[in-house]
């Protein structure tokens, strides 16, 4: 669903207008979803509608897919010759842009936290500091190879000459992180923050349901128009229930 969100953004669409009215049954969404459905039906793997990150990673690593749009974190594994059969034959670039470059690449984060219930918070803090330190990056680079260094965790990683030499995707990852703006991700103004998500508690539910409906368009069980109409209705229901619209 994350890729569909960036696709909708770059086609000029948005989830909600400034008054939280769902904007799914619109021409921007229609062109984005039509493009996505056609792309996957013509060139996608047979189980495209239900594949997750790991299935697609396996397919790509074994040379079954020519192109894959997903998170920058996958690059390290794809360039690792021990894991990937295509390591010497792979290149990276940004996802294509349609109407606007705004919101065409997503931004997400993996965070480490210590629960307040922890009985070993001092040790946990020590671990967190170590796992995010320069020394850890150095250790991974020397032990497992520089392509596998955790990307995007430290600015200094992108000043490491060994890393920049070993990882051809490093510069692009850094640029993508720096240019992704969760506050300005759509062509038209929106009341929410987030590129591939809407920062409200109701969104996981809305996103999952709309994603499941789009899957029906990808498998050809329903048409894009039907799917968008249902998605619009479902999102309106949830937003009305939550009191955003009346």
């Amino acid at each position: 669903m994350a890729y569909i969100d960036t696709l909708v953004n770059t086609f000029g669409g948005r989830w909600f207008d400034m008054h939280w009215n769902p904007q799914i049954n619109t021409s921007a969404w229609r062109s984005a979803i039509n493009y996505y459905v056609r792309l996957l039906q013509d060139y996608g793997p047979p189980t495209a509608s239900s594949n997750g990150f790991n299935q697609n990673l396996t397919l790509f690593e074994n040379g079954h897919c020519a192109m894959w749009v997903d998170a920058t974190t996958a690059a390290g594994t794809l360039f690792d010759p021990r894991e990937s059969a295509v390591a010497n034959n792979v290149a990276v670039t940004s996802a294509p842009v349609a109407v606007t470059p705004l919101g065409s690449h997503l931004l997400w984060t993996w965070a480490l936290a210590i629960p307040s219930t922890s009985r070993h918070s001092a040790q946990a803090l020590e671990f967190v500091q170590w796992a995010t330190s320069k020394q850890y990056v150095q250790l991974v680079g020397e032990t497992y190879g520089w392509t596998l260094v955790p990307p995007g965790t430290r600015k200094s990683t992108y000043e490491q000459a060994q890393y920049l030499r070993a990882a051809p995707f490093a510069q692009l990852t850094l640029e993508s992180i720096l240019t992704a703006d969760p506050r300005r991700a759509t062509l038209d103004p929106v009341p929410y923050v987030g590129i591939q998500f809407v920062g409200i508690p109701q969104f996981p539910n809305i996103g999952t349901q709309v994603g499941q409906l789009i899957a029906a368009a990808v498998t050809g069980l329903e048409s894009t128009d039907e799917v968008l109409a249902t998605s619009q209705a479902v999102t309106e229901r949830v937003m009305r229930r939550a009191g955003y619209i009346h």
Partner: peptide, 22 residues
């Protein structure tokens, strides 16, 4: 996961969706 669309959503899955997703 109940899909694609609603093609494999049955009543117990619907209740799950309401209780744990919504």
């Amino acid at each position: 996961g109940g899909g694609p669309g609603y093609s494999t959503t049955n009543l117990s899955y619907l209740v799950y969706r309401y209780a744990l997703l919504e």
